[in-house]
């Protein structure tokens, strides 16, 4: 990882890939109806070419375990593991578990010991759980002890059939305070609750945020809105410059469009490099990877 010259994309959903859809036929229904993406699956080579186009050298691939609520694995930890194993130079993995399952702890241990994933992705929206449910505390403890990342899906879920009540980043504050050695990463900058995200990140040095998600216009327009406009430029440059991570949320958005958006922002160039690359590298190294 230390020889990386290009960027790191910290939020890629490993779905909408033809080869995975052919291995898991249920995946197409899950992509359309649950993940709520209705564009054609593309071959894996398109993701790789998108990364090249965008100067992204490392992509962090996510799975979502929504079996309990939707009968969906998107695409499943095994499939992520296969992709990462086959393309170790390009990908690292973040798996998923159902945190309310009675097998949650053993599944979490597998993510660490068998798959060597960086962490776990939990989505209160897709998986319908309250992050403050006490049944999850043992999951957080194990993550903290194992030095694995906890990536929370925060921000607006576009699929209006999913609940939104647990997607505000404020809900993470209690968890971040109680498990203050656990690194928590919040997706989509918690949009539209950006100021709430700030509150959580200002108070908790163990919380990071990913710039993924495009809600208010083109990628450049949206990145300006969340990172530059008004007082946000000061916050980005002075307060959060070392805890923001670049993410495209491919295939929800093309990777080069998101990279281009960050590269053109009116913020200090070293802050841009932190977002696009340095913060991710430092974070991954801190996990001992």
């Amino acid at each position: 990882m230390s020889n990386l010259a290009g960027y790191v994309d910290f939020h890629i959903h490993a779905i909408g890939i033809e080869e995975l859809v052919s291995k898991n036929p249920n995946l197409l229904r899950c992509i359309k109806d649950v993940f709520y993406l209705r564009t054609r699956p593309q071959p894996l080579t398109v993701l790789i070419k998108q990364m090249e186009q965008a100067n992204v050298e490392k992509g962090i691939l996510y799975s979502i375990d929504a079996k309990r609520v939707h009968n969906c694995e998107m695409p499943g930890n095994d499939l992520i593991y296969e992709l990462v194993k086959e393309h170790q130079d390009l990908f690292m993995g973040i798996g998923s578990i159902d945190p309310l399952s009675e097998n949650a702890l053993s599944e979490l241990e597998k993510l660490y010991s068998k798959y060597e994933f960086l962490g776990v992705f939990l989505s209160p929206a897709y998986q319908e759980f309250n992050p403050l449910d006490s049944r999850l505390f043992k999951v957080y403890e194990l993550l903290e002890d194992s030095r694995m990342l906890l990536v929370f899906h925060t921000g607006l879920p576009w699929n209006n059939k999913l609940p939104m009540k647990w997607s505000n980043p404020l809900i993470v504050d209690d968890i971040a305070r109680k498990y203050n050695k656990l690194i928590i990463v919040l997706t989509h900058m918690g949009w539209p609750w950006l100021d709430d995200l700030y509150a959580v990140m200002f108070r908790n040095r163990n919380v990071y945020a990913i710039t993924s998600g495009v809600y208010t216009g083109s990628p450049f327009e949206h990145m300006r809105t969340i990172l530059v406009e008004g007082y946000r430029k000061r916050v980005t440059e002075r307060f959060l410059s070392e805890r923001l991570l670049f993410g495209s949320e491919f295939p929800r958005m093309e990777i080069w469009k998101m990279v281009d958006a960050i590269e053109r922002l009116e913020i200090a160039s070293d802050v841009k490099m932190n977002i696009l690359r340095n913060n991710a590298l430092r974070l991954i190294r801190s996990l001992g990877r």
Binding site: T39, V214, Y215
Partner: peptide, 20 residues
Amino acid sequence: PEDDNYYHHHFFYKDGRAAV
């Protein structure tokens, strides 16, 4: 140009992603 005030650039519910 890629930068302009395009009315197309909004969330496309039928695609499940932003049109950009």
